[in-house]
Nucleic acid binder design. Structure first.
Length: 792
DNA sequence: GATTGTGCCCTTTTT
DNA sequence: GGGCACAATC
């Protein structure tokens, strides 16, 4: 955990001003700088004034940042005065580790290093009272936000189909990222007419209510952390001055991904010293969908006319084949700053392209390829990563890896902290810490069941809305209100609030683990879960145990002293909770067992590198995604995403696609992605496919890159001959299985003889359900299955 | 009020 | 294929 929040009572004014004991060590500095190339060295040693570093993929961006921090401290800068902002916890942690390696643990840990959200949350816990927030405010995640929007849509008697929670929330998020208040939103005629045209005129009203409900719950969503920080610095100059003064040196990673709110905060913070160094690559901007604004790179040039620009164009990561392929791909984008990325790492292996008939076969092919390389070259699992566009694609690879007994780890997806049972327990902790947290209240008031039903809760919510107060307040004054609840129900609600209060009373006296354990056992959740002895039920209990273990680790862990003057002591539950809300699954690495194949979305892979990279699911409508095809800017973002994907590879890049894939339980036809065609064919090895053999079964995996090629399969590069290829396939289907009917006996190259159960769909989507002896029922796309009719 | 059953939407991507 | 909201039934 990088950015640790500590007790808010410890004010920043209790400064433990460190004497600058570390004298510049000339040998060390020289050695440090000798490890850099010329532009890197210039960027690192140019410490005063605004600096922008435009760095290509693999050009040593992180290295420049970490060395810069080390160099600053060596020159005598106080680590407490350095602020380094990243976009992911993982990036922040890695940077911190590298800085500590360079200059030692004692100094390195004092640098303020964390994600925008984590650092600003920390500041808001200390300063939020200026804006009317208590220091124990809750951070609502997307899930909480969606529930709240749903409730509001319901309360306003709006149609849930016209106002889907995720859509509304996205609009609200964009508005907040651009610093729109609900009032700004409602008064903006352009926005309003957009909503009007879209048939969703009430979004502004929902936004207004959403913000009011957040405030009432003493809660902020992710966007509020930025919005409110900006507000704080805008309206409270003395607070701004304090932090301007504190952060003498500001460093920002992945600057191309900053949104408008982040841009303005940075501008304000840096205004006093103007010692701001931003590092970015426009080609790797992949977060425009959540408000990132590449224009911020241009704004930087305008805001700081005397800035110095450094370009890092030498790629140290990848082979020439990979660098050339990525240059070619990104050249298709109109919007870009021209760069010439080069490497002297040597040509390297050609890019492999795997073509599979189905998503399952794609997974088998990829995993067999991994297995082959592992065996042939004796490589550890951690050299491999499988990258995909959407989280949903992980399943088939997971299964294939499990079959081959290869250790793997999935990043993202349904994260540990978003599992229902974990969220339930966390809701108890949240409510204990912040009684006004309504999402938590709603979640657990009747879970486990304590006889407080839906109608009772509805009545309380109506009361809360009428009196504009929190649910907690209503729950505590039910006896004196004309609530319409019956006496036994009121008694049960009172029992609940009394219990929560008794937990709260122990916040200060028990450490995080003791209290968490006490709450978990007192509320009877484990007991409820134990009644379910299915595998899922058992895994739920295990997850809760895992959560308690995590809290135990946290409690025992040494306090990271990155707030000045912090008093070490047993760590408490509210400290744990303030960290957990900004955590994602990727932040839970098990240090004991690190040798696994990684599976993650391309977004999650940004900033990482692996020797062997598999980019899978390269199909039109999946990658690029179907939503991106209507606007050029969206398509270009997808292309940048592809660029990010292929530039993760150090030695060997393998691309794959499937010709058919299950989506939403339906078999869909796929065409290879246009991105594959954008790579110079000379850089790609002839495509291979596994044909219809079943390699996983034999236990005899193929040698690296040596798949069975079936003579009957037309093997052509999709780059050169895909139309022709398709034509052949179409003809095949038309001539051979056009008259396929129920009850016919057919021959399949892999499954053998089978009987047709049903035929559905038309044209290229025509498919048959066939029962094969020994294989069972299969759904086959006629276009690919090449069924031979034996008998009628 | 709780439990079980049924239809409906879903899939971008993350802090 | 699966999770979740709503409906029907005890």
């Amino acid at each position: 955990m990088v950015c640790t929040y500590h007790m808010p009572s410890v004010a920043l004014t209790r400064v433990r001003r460190k004497a600058l004991t570390l004298l510049p060590n000339q040998d060390f500095v020289t050695e440090l700088l000798n490890q850099l190339n010329e532009p890197q060295r210039q960027a690192v040693t140019h410490t005063e004034g605004p600096v922008m570093i435009i760095a290509g993929a693999g050009a040593g961006k992180t290295r420049a940042l970490t060395y810069r921090i080390a160099h600053l401290i060596n020159k005598g800068a106080d680590p407490f005065q350095i602020l380094a902002l990243t976009f992911t916890n993982k990036a922040a942690r890695e940077m911190k580790e590298r800085v500590m390696e360079l200059i030692g643990h004692a100094e390195g840990r004092n640098v303020w290093m964390g994600t925008f959200h984590a650092v600003f949350a920390k500041i808001l816990r200390i300063e939020g009272h200026h804006l009317g927030y208590p220091s124990n405010f809750t951070i609502y995640d997307t899930d909480d936000g969606k529930r709240l929007v749903k409730n509001i849509v319901n309360d306003l008697n709006l149609d849930a189909k016209t106002y889907p929670a995720s859509f509304v929330l996205h609009r609200i998020s964009s508005a907040k990222s651009n610093l729109f208040t609900p009032e700004d939103y409602l008064n903006n005629s352009e926005v309003r007419s957009n909503d009007q045209v879209a048939g969703k005129p009430m979004i502004g009203e929902i936004f207004k209510s959403y913000n009011a409900r957040l405030k009432r719950a003493d809660a902020m969503d992710f966007d509020d952390l930025l919005f409110n920080t900006n507000l704080l610095f805008r309206d409270f100059p003395e607070v701004l001055y304090k932090y301007q003064h504190k952060f003498n040196f500001i460093l920002v990673d992945e600057y191309q991904d900053t949104n408008h709110a982040q841009y303005l905060i940075l501008k304000k913070l840096a205004a006093l010293h103007e010692n701001i160094c931003v590092v970015g690559d426009d080609a790797q901007s992949i977060y425009a969908f959540r408000g990132a604004n590449i224009q911020n790179i241009l704004n930087f040039k305008h805001d700081y006319p005397d800035h110095q620009l450094y370009r890092l164009e030498q790629n140290y990561r990848s082979t020439n084949v990979i660098v050339q392929a990525s240059n070619k791909v990104i050249a298709n984008n109109k919007d870009q700053i021209k760069k010439t990325i080069w490497t002297d790492k040597g040509e390297g292996e050609l890019i492999s392209l795997l073509r599979a008939t189905s998503d399952n076969e794609e997974a088998t092919l990829v995993v067999n390829s991994i297995f082959g390389y592992k065996m042939a070259k004796q490589l550890p699992n951690k050299h491999f990563v499988i990258l995909y566009r959407t989280n949903a694609q992980s399943r088939t690879f997971e299964e294939a890896l499990r079959k081959q007994n290869i250790a793997y780890r999935i990043y993202g997806g349904l994260s540990f902290y978003s599992r229902k049972e974990v969220k339930d327990i966390l809701a108890y902790f949240r409510l204990v810490i912040n009684h006004n947290d309504e999402e938590a209240f709603n979640r657990i008031i009747n879970y486990p069941a304590r006889g407080i039903g839906k109608t009772s809760i509805e009545k309380m919510i109506v009361l809360a809305n009428d009196m504009n107060t929190s649910l907690w307040e209503i729950a505590n004054t039910l006896g004196s209100l004309n609530s319409g609840l019956n006496r036994p129900t009121i008694a049960r609600v009172e029992e609940f609030t009394t219990m929560i209060r008794s937990f709260a009373a122990q916040l200060a006296t028990k450490d995080a683990y003791e209290l968490a354990k006490h709450i978990t056992s007192s509320v009877g959740l484990i007991k409820t879960l134990k009644e379910d002895d299915s595998p899922e039920g058992i895994s739920r209990i295990e997850n809760i145990e895992e959560l308690l273990n995590a809290i135990k680790d946290f409690t025992e862990k040494e306090v990271d002293q990155d707030v000045e003057g912090i008093v070490a002591g047993p760590r408490q539950l509210n400290e744990f909770m303030s960290e957990v809300s900004l955590l994602t699954d990727a932040d839970n690495d098990d240090p004991e067992n690190t040798d696994y194949v990684s599976l993650m979305t391309i977004h999650a892979a940004k900033g990482l590198e692996f020797p062997y990279v598999y980019v899978v699911g390269l199909e039109e409508n999946l990658f690029p995604s179907i939503q991106s095809l209507s606007a050029r800017s969206d398509l270009e973002e997808e292309r940048r995403l592809f660029y990010v994907a292929i530039t993760r590879a150090e030695e060997k890049l393998t691309l794959s696609y499937a010709e058919s894939r299950y989506r939403w339980g339906n078999l869909t036809m796929c065409e290879p992605s246009r991105f594959v065609e954008e790579i110079d064919p000379a850089l790609i090895e002839k495509p291979r496919r596994a044909g219809f053999s079943s390699p996983a079964k034999s236990g005899q995996p193929h040698q690296a890159g040596n798949f069975v090629k079936l003579p009957s399969t037309p093997v052509t590069s999709p780059v050169q001959a895909s139309p022709e290829d398709k034509l052949q396939l179409d003809n095949f289907e038309a001539s051979d299985t056009v008259g396929l009917q129920n009850g016919m006996v057919v021959l399949h190259q892999k499954f053998g003889k089978g009987k047709v159960i049903s035929v559905e769909g038309t044209g290229p989507n025509k498919k048959a359900t066939v029962f094969f002896n020994g294989y069972g029922q299969k759904q086959l796309l006629l276009k690919f299955a090449r069924l031979q009719i034996l008998d009628e």
